[in-house]
Simulated assay, not measured.
Amino acid sequence: MTDRVVVVAGAVYDKGRLLAARRSAPEELAGRWELPGGKLEPGESPEQALVRELREELGVETEPVERIPGEWQLKPGYVLQVWTARLVSGEPRPLEDHDALRWLAPDETDAVDWLDPDRPAVAEAARRLRAGYPGMRDNGTTPS
């Protein structure tokens, strides 16, 4: 039995850009930006939870690519793990817990006020996008 709750988030990318989601709740987080995701449910792998959460929160289908190294404390008993994830289908919409979405180029990631626990993963995802990291390439698409 574990005494911590794992929260998974997706560094969702498409066409060389990273998706940012602005929180609408809870009040203490509202107006700040995050990588979207949510809590692992019993019996789920982190990758399964990520796909489910992104479908529920954004209405999109994604493919987890790989975990960004590290784990970040959210609040006592809660830790954040982040995966890069490729957008497979759908146009992201803020369906739950968010009131706005933005696609950011790698050099624009500091244009929003990220939640503190997300900052290290955002920096790594942006670095990977800038470097053309194999796990961050868009399959079958070219940037316009």
Rank of each mutant, 00 (worst) to 15 (best):
M1Y: 11
M1D: 14
M1V: 12
D3Y: 01
D3S: 08
R4H: 09
R4K: 04
V5N: 06
V7R: 07
V8A: 04
A9R: 12
A9C: 08
G10W: 04
G10E: 05
D14V: 00
D14W: 14
D14K: 00
D14R: 10
G16I: 09
R17C: 01
R17G: 00
R17T: 06
L18T: 03
L19W: 07
A21G: 04
R23A: 05
R23K: 10
S24E: 09
A25I: 02
P26A: 00
E27N: 01
E28D: 08
E28Y: 11
E28S: 03
L29H: 05
R32G: 00
W33I: 11
E34P: 00
E34L: 02
E34R: 05
L35M: 07
L35Q: 06
G37I: 06
G38L: 05
G38N: 02
K39M: 00
L40M: 08
E41H: 11
G43A: 06
E44K: 06
E44N: 09
S45M: 00
L50W: 01
V51M: 10
V51W: 04
R52W: 07
E53H: 11
E53Y: 03
L54P: 02
L54S: 02
G59N: 11
V60Q: 10
V60N: 08
E61K: 07
T62M: 01
T62W: 01
E63T: 08
E63I: 03
E63K: 13
E63G: 03
P64V: 05
V65Y: 03
E66A: 02
P69C: 14
G70T: 06
Q73R: 14
Q73P: 03
K75W: 15
G77R: 05
V79F: 09
Q81C: 00
Q81E: 14
Q81N: 01
Q81Y: 00
T84P: 01
T84K: 01
R86Q: 10
R86H: 04
L87D: 12
L87H: 11
V88L: 13
S89V: 05
G90N: 09
E91C: 01
P92I: 06
R93M: 12
P94F: 03
E96L: 15
E96I: 15
E96C: 06
E96H: 14
D97F: 10
D97L: 12
D97N: 08
D99A: 05
D99I: 09
L101I: 13
R102C: 04
P106H: 03
D107H: 15
D107C: 02
E108K: 07
T109V: 15
T109Q: 07
D110V: 03
A111S: 15
V112M: 10
V112L: 12
D113K: 14
W114M: 09
L115K: 10
D116I: 07
R119A: 02
A121C: 13
A123V: 10
R128K: 13
G132A: 14
Y133F: 15
P134E: 12
P134A: 08
G135P: 10
G135A: 13
M136C: 15
D138Q: 04
D138H: 06
N139D: 15
T141P: 00
T142W: 14
P143K: 10
S144Q: 14
S144W: 15
